[in-house]
């Protein structure tokens, strides 16, 4: 039984692509067969985040238009056995694919893979409609900012209108210290407002920038806080009950705990 999950947000720049890559890599690291679909046609990015940009031959529109077989367009990841990418087209626009084609494509991928994870473009237009067309579940990514949470609310409304009920929320780039000082909305604040289930919280982490520079995913970095957060998210997607990690460890005890390796 496979799952088809779309990762969306409304607002751009909140970390959809990074989230998609890390969830995919995390699931693959646990031995699952995963395909990541870049639905951001015209602005493809998932390939560079995964470090697979030099290996693209065919893309998603080549498949939907019948220029190649699905198998030929899939790129196998170097580091994770079982992780594959179906890249977006870069020289076309969002109208190059339609929701019917996406549904068919997702169905074909679901026959081969345990997890089909779709990276949705920003916005709520055709690209969004395409990306959600074949999905069974939705993950909404937001950051603790007014604009991002507002757009997340809009997207949740649109997802529910499209029968994708109970989307799960990931709060990305939270800064525990700012939350503690009352200068950033916290987890409860955002959950209160959006009234959805929380899938995970990812702290702001320089290691995400560093690993992305290298075309790697932070999820396999044992020392990284964000990597730990993504590993937890992956386990929750698998259905495990994993408690939310304590983000507030910038005090003396927290530092001590980190030094001696307790998380």
């Amino acid at each position: 039984m496979s799952e088809i999950i779309v990762v969306t947000s409304g607002k751009g720049g909140v970390g959809k692509t990074t989230t998609t890559a890390n969830i995919g890599a995390g699931l693959a690291a646990l031995g699952h067969k995963v395909v990541l679909v870049d639905a951001d046609i015209g602005l493809r990015n998932l390939d560079v985040v995964l470090g697979l940009e030099n290996r693209i031959v065919y893309d998603i529109t080549d498949v939907t238009e019948g220029h190649c077989r699905l198998r030929q367009a899939l790129i196998k990841d170097k580091r994770y056995e079982g992780l594959f990418l179906l890249p977006a087209a870069q020289t076309k626009d969002k109208t190059a694919v339609n929701p019917e084609q996406m549904k068919k494509l997702c169905g074909e991928l679901a026959a081969e893979f345990e997890y089909v994870i779709i990276d949705c473009p920003a916005g709520i237009e055709q690209g969004f409609r395409n990306a959600i067309a074949g999905a069974q579940k939705a993950i909404v990514v937001t950051t603790p900012e007014v604009a991002a949470v507002r757009d997340a609310d809009r997207v949740i409304g649109l997802l529910e209108a499209a029968e994708l009920r109970n989307p799960a929320l990931i709060i990305n780039r939270i800064r525990p210290k700012m939350v503690r000082h009352g200068d950033m909305m916290g987890i409860e604040d955002i959950i209160d407002i959006l009234a959805v289930d929380l899938l995970g919280v990812v702290p702001e982490d320089e290691l995400v920038v560093i690993s992305t520079n290298r075309g790697e995913t932070v999820v396999s970095d044992e020392r990284s806080r964000s990597g730990q957060a993504y590993r937890n998210i992956v386990r929750r997607i698998k259905g495990e009950a994993v408690p939310m990690m304590n983000l507030d460890d910038s005090g003396f005890l927290g530092r001590l705990r980190r030094i001696i390796g307790l998380k």
């Binding site: 900012e145 949470v149 507002r150 609310d153 009352g182 200068d183 909305m185 407002i193």
Partner: peptide, 15 residues
């Protein structure tokens, strides 16, 4: 004077 409360209130209204 927490700016978080300002953010929350603005968000509530805009929603």
């Amino acid at each position: 004077t927490a700016s978080k409360n300002v953010a929350k209130e603005r968000l509530r209204l805009v929603l």
